[in-house]
């Protein structure tokens, strides 16, 4: 047992490097595959040296923004989920629990179905919707402080309320449902540089916070009372983390639609690889989260080419069984 535990500690840095390699590899796989196959060498040539080839056009205008958005979405959602699972000390917590999907979804669908002429407001609307739903849930759970269980229950209740709104909209306007399916399952088709610009600030802030905050989460994991005893302001920390993860997940949802599954499952998978210490878990989630979304999106484009499947379907179809496999293999978690 002792030697196994030592190995465990030493491996973490190595696993992190592996995940980083996976991230870089998936970047090249994603850019190289599609209607035109491009080799890694051609990718480097096209990005840095040749400016007027077809490869350059394909990569620069279509594949690069799409791959970057996929990566950023993966980062935002998995960080969001990792934070929420930590502050609620509950493995089922994810962006969906704090109303990101239902709040963002209802707002986006309201715009798409009732005010289609304002379709360009969908990202902003989804973002605001997610944040409002989160704050609403937080206020409902507040009673001399917020307990994780109460927050989760309030989240489940509010989410089903908002989801009934979504379903009502789809029932009353069946003719417009086809147009919103893409948003509902989450997809990355027709991504451009403007979406990269939208997501980039959040991802940068995310990576920056990863350097600063893991200790607070490690402490919070020990329990509210222990954390208080160690001089952590539990209420304040929990609130700021909830807002932070809502911002992360909301920004991702606003760009690609309801892809909340990533936020639930990637942090778990990363935890199975690298353990629950947030100093490793955060960077692990950044690398693995982006790899997962990038690779799934590549599959979504290539698998039934020229037809494209929404990435959310691939993600769930592959992610869930793989996750179950990991869960069975590693009994200790």
């Amino acid at each position: 047992m002792d030697s196994c535990e030592k190995k465990h500690g030493m491996n973490k840095g190595f696993i992190l490097i592996l995940l980083m390699v996976l991230c870089i590899a998936s970047f090249f796989i994603s850019i190289g595959n599609g209607a035109v196959k491009i080799s890694p060498k051609e990718i480097v040539d096209a990005v840095f040296f040749e400016k007027d080839t077809i490869n350059y056009q394909v990569i620069w205008n279509v594949r690069l923004p799409r791959t970057i958005v996929a990566g950023l979405v993966g980062i935002c959602l998995s960080l969001s989920g990792a934070i929420l699972q930590g502050i609620m000390r509950n493995p089922l917590a994810g962006p969906n629990i704090i109303g990101v999907s239902s709040g963002g979804g209802l707002m986006a669908l309201t715009i798409l179905i009732l005010f289609p002429e304002f379709y360009y407001l969908v990202p902003v609307g989804a973002f605001i919707g997610s944040l409002l739903a989160t704050l609403f849930i937080y206020c409902l759970a507040w009673k001399d402080g917020v307990l994780p269980t109460r927050l989760i229950l309030a989240g489940v209740a509010v989410s089903s309320l908002l989801n009934s709104g979504i379903n009502a909209l789809m029932t009353f306007f069946p003719d417009k449902v086809a147009g919103v399916i893409g948003f509902m399952v989450g997809g990355l088709s027709a991504t451009t540089w403007s979406q990269v610009k939208l997501l980039f600030p959040y991802a940068v802030v995310g990576v920056f916070l990863v350097m600063l905050l893991p200790n607070k989460l490690n402490i919070l994991m020990l329990g509210d009372e222990v954390a208080t005893g160690l001089g952590l302001n539990v209420e304040k920390t929990r609130f700021s983390f909830i807002v932070l993860s809502s911002l992360f997940a909301g920004s991702a949802v606003s760009v690609v639609g309801l892809l909340g599954f990533v936020g639930l499952i990637v942090p778990h998978m990363t935890r199975l690889f690298i353990g629950s210490d947030y100093r490793y878990l955060f960077p692990g989630c950044i690398f693995f989260g982006s790899s997962v979304v990038i690779l799934c999106d590549t599959l979504a484009r290539v698998l039934f080419a020229p037809m494209e499947i929404p990435v959310g379907i691939i993600m769930s179809a592959l992610g869930a069984p793989f996750f179950l496999y990991l869960l069975r293999k590693k009994e200790s978690v």
């Binding site: 465990h8 000390r89 994991m221 020990l222 329990g223 009372e225 222990v226 005893g229 629950s276």
Partner: peptide, 16 residues
């Protein structure tokens, strides 16, 4: 917290 430490009944620690 620098002067006063507490050990509550309810504590939680990850398995690893």
């Amino acid at each position: 917290a620098q002067k006063l430490a507490i050990l509550p009944q309810v504590k939680n620690v990850s398995s690893d």
